[in-house]
Amino acid sequence: MSSATTFYDFKPLDKTGKELPLSTYAGKVVLVVNTASKCGFTPQFAGLEKLYKDITEKHGDKFVIIGFPCNQFGGQDPGSDEEIQSFCQLNYGVSFPVLHKIDVNGDNADPVYQWLKEEKPGLLGLKRIKWNFEKFLIGKDGKVKERWASTTKPESLEKAILEELAK
């Protein structure tokens, strides 16, 4: 992890369990979200999908949202990767990538999340994810630009995303 300098240096697993080099997204603005299917914030999938569609309609493939399912908060994403994909598609029409389920905190935290938390600690410098649907904005340069709490609604992020796209 210590050798990583940008978001694009990581290779988490995709929904089928294969490595996905995040370098695939180099030069794009990326919104990273730790998701869950059975959480009070789960309806944010609808807002995320609308945000994704609205921005990609105007800016093409220069923007992407990547969901990282996580079951660490109240066991709110207990399903298999296949069940999670099905849930996101059937209930919210999610068309952005939702990857392999990971841990975002603790000894087994995925390296991309270890890096995100180091780059942009939360309130009071805390380096942990507090709950599902925390959001990180990655600029075209692969650096973390912003971090938002679970309570931040996806629609309120459009201005910050558009500003990054304009850079």
Rank of each mutant, 00 (worst) to 15 (best):
A36V: 10
G106Y: 11
Y25H: 07
K38L: 07
Y92W: 10
H100M: 03
P97D: 10
R147H: 01
Y52V: 04
M1V: 10
V144L: 03
Q114M: 14
V94R: 13
T24G: 10
E83I: 07
L116T: 06
E49A: 06
K11L: 04
T42D: 01
K167V: 13
G74T: 00
Y52E: 07
Y113H: 09
G79H: 14
R147D: 03
N34L: 04
E119Q: 13
P97Q: 01
P21F: 01
G60F: 02
A109G: 09
L99N: 02
L48T: 15
D77N: 15
Y113N: 13
G75F: 10
E49H: 01
G139V: 02
F87E: 12
Y92K: 09
E119K: 11
P69A: 14
T152Q: 11
V112G: 10
A160K: 05
K140F: 02
K101T: 01
F7P: 11
F7D: 03
Y25P: 04
G122S: 06
F7T: 10
R128Y: 07
L162C: 08
K28V: 05
F96W: 05
G93Y: 07
T5S: 15
L137N: 00
N132C: 07
V64D: 03
K38Y: 12
E119H: 08
K167L: 12
L51Y: 02
F133C: 01
F133L: 05
F96A: 07
N71R: 06
E19K: 07
F96L: 01
Q76K: 14
S80V: 12
D61V: 13
K143W: 12
P69N: 13
L13K: 05
I138G: 02
K101R: 11
G27Y: 07
S3F: 12
V104C: 05
P154H: 11
I102Y: 12
E118T: 08
V32Q: 05
E57L: 01
W115F: 14
K50Q: 14
Q89M: 10
F96D: 13
I138H: 02
D110M: 04
I55D: 09
G142T: 02
Q76T: 12
K58T: 14
G60I: 03
Y25S: 06
V98C: 04
K58S: 13
G17T: 06
C88S: 11
L48P: 05
K101G: 04
G47C: 11
Q44T: 09
F96S: 03
G27A: 04
F41S: 06
L123H: 03
S23E: 15
A26K: 07
D141F: 09
P121K: 10
Q44R: 06
E82F: 09
Y8A: 02
W148C: 00
G67M: 04
A109S: 13
H100G: 08
A36H: 06
H100E: 07
L31I: 03
A149T: 08
T35P: 02
G74Y: 05
E57S: 11
K50H: 09
L90W: 01
V94W: 11
M1T: 15
W131S: 01
F73R: 07
V30R: 00
K153A: 13
L123S: 14
K58W: 15
G139F: 04
I129W: 02
S95N: 11
A46R: 05
L124D: 02
L124K: 09
F41K: 05
L90Y: 13
C70H: 08
E49G: 03
V32E: 00
Y8D: 03
P78C: 15
